[in-house]
Amino acid sequence: MNVIETRDLGRRYGSKWALRDCTLAIPDGHLVALVGPNGAGKSTLLNLVVGLTPPTEGSVEVLGGATAGSVAALDGIAFVAQDMPLYRHLSVADMLHLTSNLNLRFDTVYARRRLDDLGIDHKQKAGKLSGGQQAQLALTLGLARHPRLLVLDEPTAPLDPVARHDFMATVLTSMADDGVSVVLSSHMLAELERVTDYLVLIGQGRVRLNDEVDDLLATHRLVSAATPDRLSGLDGEVIESSTMGAQTHQLIRLASPDAPLPLDCEARPVGLEELALAYLRESAPALALSAVGATR
């Protein structure tokens, strides 16, 4: 079953396409990292998934067939938006009460216990909490709904390293305990490397990667050779190429994990961050091209 399935999904704001030709299928049970350069359409995709934005073209289905934004979809998805919007003048207890009344299911006992563990005073106004506490409150409100899919838009961006660590620990615990699937967008590649097991990479408003992290790591190699022609016979796609001194380095996506490599070159596996960066860099210059295409 796929928690998110999109087909030719596109969203246009005015005359500008924020996302286009997005076809995705994300299976359940993963912690999915959604990465891409700024303006690549990450937030647009998440807004489409949670039903905040209707698609301009194509379709988006969630939780195995529910239309995004339908009652069933809203009921099963918890969304923590960028900058953790909360009613600042309401107390923590009121935010809990409010969320429990806006949903059919809300685990007040779980929410209270978690906030107690975090040392968050229930009488405190939401706006008076620290950034890390606000993020934890927003996350708790989402998790107490016992969603089947948790969608997080840049959740750790405004947090300090400790708060960021605590936040991710909560997410991972709920994955282990409740089996909730998680999709999160982030710029923090190094940090995601440890926790994510599924990568979706968007560049130029379209999907570049949509794979399990293990598969990606198994099929990508950084190969180095004295001359570029030594690498020409490889069975794979060159993602990035650079020349440093006499050596040519190429990040290659092999057709299969056991595809043969030339004998006279060095090949080493790459980390997720390195891999993602190569795809992001590859997307960057092409942005200019797509802009020309859009105005034409």
Partner: peptide, 14 residues
């Protein structure tokens, strides 16, 4: 204005 619609409109009530 404050962005809380992203909270309010994604709750189960819709």
């Amino acid at each position: 204005e404050t962005g809380t619609f992203r909270y309010a409109w994604t709750q189960g009530a819709g």
